[in-house]
Design a protein around this nucleic acid. Structure first.
Lengths: 206, 206
DNA sequence: ATCGTTTCCTAGTGATCGTTATAAAAGCCT
DNA sequence: AGGCTTTTATAACGATCACTAGGAAACGAT
C-alpha cells in the first residue's frame, strides 16, 4: 500500500534540501508573470532558491518544469474540464468559467492574467512544440464547453437553433481576452462586468 | 515646399540598396507571427534581406523597428481610433472593430492573430517598457470606443442605463481573445460567428 | 578625377541563453 | 567505520542574444 500510494519514496542517498512543491509554485508564479520564453533558467533558480543542477535533477528541463507548472495551475482551479462536465447546465458552466477567470486574473497574491491564456501565445520556432501543447489544452477546454452546450441543446435545455461552436467560442474568446485586459491593468470589478456582459447574450430558456 | 513635404530627401552619399518599406513589412510579419521578444535580430535581418548594421542605421534598434512596425500595422487598418470616432453609431463602431479583427486575424497572406493583441502580452523585465507602450495603445483604442458609447448614451441613441465601460470592455476582450483563438487555429467563419455573438448582447435601440 | 557623404559587409564585442561535467557533501545501510 | 546512493555547488560548455567598430564601396558635387 505504501509503495503504491507513494511509489517513489526515497530510502537512501542525500535528501532533497528544498521543498519541491514550493519551488514549483515559485516557478509557476514566474512563468505566470513573464511568460514561458521570457523567463530564464537563471530567473527560475534565483526565485526557487536552488542551483541549475538541482532544477534539472528535480524537473528535467525548462520545458517540463513549465508544463508541470501549468498542470499545477490548472489543478489549482480544480480540474477545469471536469467542472464543465459536472455543471448543472451549460449556462452555469459558462458563467463559472467566466467568473473563475475574472477572479483568477485579479488575485491579490498572484500575477495578473491567466497562465494558460497568456504565457505562451506567440513563440520562437524552438518553443513551438510547447506552444502547441498549451494550445491543445486551450482547445480541449473549449471543446468540453462546446460538448456541454450540445448536450443541453439535445436535452432541450437550450433552444434547438443554438450554435454551440459560436457560444463556446465567444465565452472562450472573452476568457482569453480578459487575461490580456488584466495584464494591462484592468481590475476585478471590470472583469466581472465583462463576464456579466458576455452572459447577457446567452440564449434564454423559454 | 519640397523640403516640407519630404524634408529628408537624400542629396549625396551612397543610396539605400533596399526598399525600406518592404523591409519594414517583412519585419512586421515576423513580429506578427512570433512576437516581439521571440523574434531575434538575426531572424529579422534574414527576412529583411539586409545585414545588422543596415538595420540599425535605417531603424535605430530592435525596439524602434518594432514600434514602427506596429505603427505601420495600425495604419494599415486605417487609423483605428479615427474610425471609431467617425462611425455612424457606437454599435457600428463596435461591429466594425469586431469584424475587422475577425478578418485581420485570418488573412490568407498574413500570420494568424493580431499584432497589437498578441505580440507583447507578457515580457521580460528588459522589454517591460515596450510592453507598456503597446498596452497604452490597446487602452487608447478601448477608451475611444468607450467614449463613443458614452456619446451615444448622452444622445439617447443607447439606453441611459447602459454601462459604457462594460460594453467597451466586453468588445475589447473579444477582440483580444479572437487573436489567441486565431493563433490556435480558429478560422474566419468561427471568428465572424463570435463577432456576431458578441454583438447579440448589445443594447437594442428602443 | 577627387572629395565629402552615406551605406555597405565582415567580423567581432561582451552578455546571456539553456544545459551539463565534475567532484565534494550528506544521508541510509551493513 | 566504510560503502552506496543521491544531491549539492562550482564552473564551465557552445550557441545565441542585441549591437557595433572598421574599412571598403557607391553615389552626387566640384
Amino acid at each position: 500500500m505504501d509503495s503504491l500510494s507513494a511509489p517513489f519514496v526515497r530510502r537512501t542517498g542525500r535528501p532533497l534540501s528544498f521543498d519541491r512543491d514550493a519551488a514549483l509554485v515559485s516557478a509557476m508564479h514566474l512563468f505566470w508573470r513573464h511568460g514561458y520564453e521570457a523567463t530564464s533558467v537563471a530567473d527560475l533558480t534565483r526565485a526557487m532558491g536552488i542551483t541549475p543542477p538541482s532544477l534539472y535533477a528535480a524537473f528535467g528541463d525548462k520545458r517540463r518544469l513549465f508544463l508541470e507548472a501549468v498542470d499545477r495551475y490548472l489543478g489549482g482551479i480544480e480540474d477545469v474540464e471536469q467542472r464543465i462536465v459536472c455543471a448543472a447546465s451549460a449556462r452555469e458552466a459558462a458563467r463559472d468559467l467566466l467568473v473563475a477567470a475574472a477572479l483568477g486574473d485579479t488575485g491579490d497574491d498572484t500575477p495578473p492574467g491567466c497562465l494558460l491564456a497568456s504565457s505562451l501565445v506567440t513563440s520562437s520556432k524552438e518553443a513551438e512544440a510547447v506552444r502547441e501543447t498549451l494550445a491543445d489544452i486551450r482547445r480541449g477546454i473549449e471543446a468540453a464547453l462546446r460538448a456541454r452546450i450540445e448536450r443541453d441543446i439535445r436535452k432541450g435545455v437550450l433552444p434547438s437553433g443554438s450554435d454551440a461552436e459560436m457560444l463556446a467560442g465567444h465565452v472562450f474568446a472573452v476568457v482569453q481576452g480578459m487575461s490580456t485586459l488584466a495584464k494591462d491593468g484592468a481590475g476585478r470589478g471590470k472583469l466581472m462586468a465583462i463576464a456579466d456582459s458576455a452572459m447577457a447574450c446567452w440564449p434564454q430558456v423559454s
